[in-house]
Simulated assay, not measured.
Amino acid sequence: MFELPRIEHRTVEVDGVEVFYRESIPARPDAPTLLLLHGFPSGSHQFRALLQALGGQYRLIAPDYPGFGHTSAPADFEYSFDRLADVIEGFVEAIDLRRFAMYVFDFGAPVGFRLALRHPEWIAGLVVQNGNAYEAGLSDGAKGFVALRPEQEGAEDTIRGLLTLEGTRGQYEHGVPDPSVLSPESWLLDQHFLDLPGRKEAQVALAFDYQSNVDSYPEWQRWLREYTPPTLVVWGVEDPFFTEPGAHAYLADVPDAELHFFGTGHFALETHLPEIAPLIAKFLDRL
């Protein structure tokens, strides 16, 4: 008889932030753990299908950052990538994780690499899905976006243009050969959370802070060279933000990284879960 995995939905308090997270309960208590770090403009819900696919075999944990999903942050929370990493660091400690692999996607890369720099002993391996750590992986459009500054006329309007339903849907559909495979609930749910009070202001603050990530690329690369974690890279090659050279660039610092490319856009799991999930399973089994 086919059995679906048990998925639990919880919150834990971290420095005044109520962090919401999803966790699969595998059949084996000693199963490998994978921390799933979501991207923009999404949340832990982007991993719903992956949790169902692999949650019976592995412990998968997917938190929402402050400013995303179901997580609730105080009104005076200051949004930056350092602060997101602070909260996820506290989250990991609060649920008593000791050693785990990380899935870093989009915003998950700057959060995850900050975590790795602070606690290299925690990281058993990396699954990188369109999670950029190299200037070679920035498209011209991404470079222009990163260069935006608060004092520039029209800069905030440019950012807010991405926070509309049209902008959110476009991030899912760009580069996808057959959009009929995309579930409309994905971008509609993202937009629901973006439209909550204070959420767009949080995203504007994070957009203006994105340059801090590019400035940190050399540190992340040094960490990769020093620790050479087992690394699986899966990449949608039609991503309008993070281009294919950003995936190949990992080989300079982690020569044994395993690379797989898919003819799709930014949200590769939305279109290629049947191909990506087995790769993750095999990777976790090898750790």
Rank of each mutant, 00 (worst) to 15 (best):
P197G: 03
Y58M: 03
Q52M: 10
Y250Q: 03
R199F: 01
G56M: 07
G67I: 03
L84W: 13
G198F: 09
T264M: 10
A142K: 03
T33G: 12
F262S: 03
L224Q: 09
D96H: 15
A281G: 14
D195F: 01
D157R: 11
P218C: 08
E153D: 13
S44Q: 04
A142I: 04
R28F: 11
S80I: 07
E78H: 13
G175M: 08
S44D: 04
G161A: 13
F262N: 05
Q152C: 04
A205H: 10
R169K: 14
E18D: 15
E201A: 09
K200S: 01
T228D: 10
L54K: 05
F40K: 09
A62M: 12
G236L: 01
F241C: 09
R10P: 07
D30F: 13
D96L: 13
V111S: 02
R225E: 15
P63H: 05
A94Y: 04
L273I: 05
H266W: 01
E18H: 14
Y227H: 15
E173I: 02
V12H: 08
D140I: 02
L188V: 12
F77D: 06
Y172F: 15
R149H: 03
D15R: 14
R169T: 08
L165T: 00
E275P: 11
F107H: 12
G55A: 04
V128G: 01
